[in-house]
Amino acid sequence: MKKVKVYVTLRESVLDPQGSAVMGSLHKMGYGEVQDVRIGKYLELVIGDSERDVDALVEELCSRLLANTVIEDYRYEIEEVVSQ
């Protein structure tokens, strides 16, 4: 069994109005040193034992559904989980 942590982030070229709103709020709170905020998504998947190559599988899940590569990038970490 494997645990996969997927990070989906907006590409640099894409404006992030949510991130801008959060940064505005941080500035109002007095944290002027914050220079940029970008909001992304974090997903955790648990993948059962499979004959498929887990890297190829996660790559496929990310590119087909979890991220829209027109506007988003993704990266992931795969951890081995010892089942109880």
Partner: peptide, 17 residues
């Protein structure tokens, strides 16, 4: 239709949220 790739591009959050 954009998600399905039948049309190009994507619809993002309105700029003023």
């Amino acid at each position: 239709l954009t998600e399905a790739g039948l049309l190009p591009g994507v619809l993002l959050r309105n700029k003023d949220l």
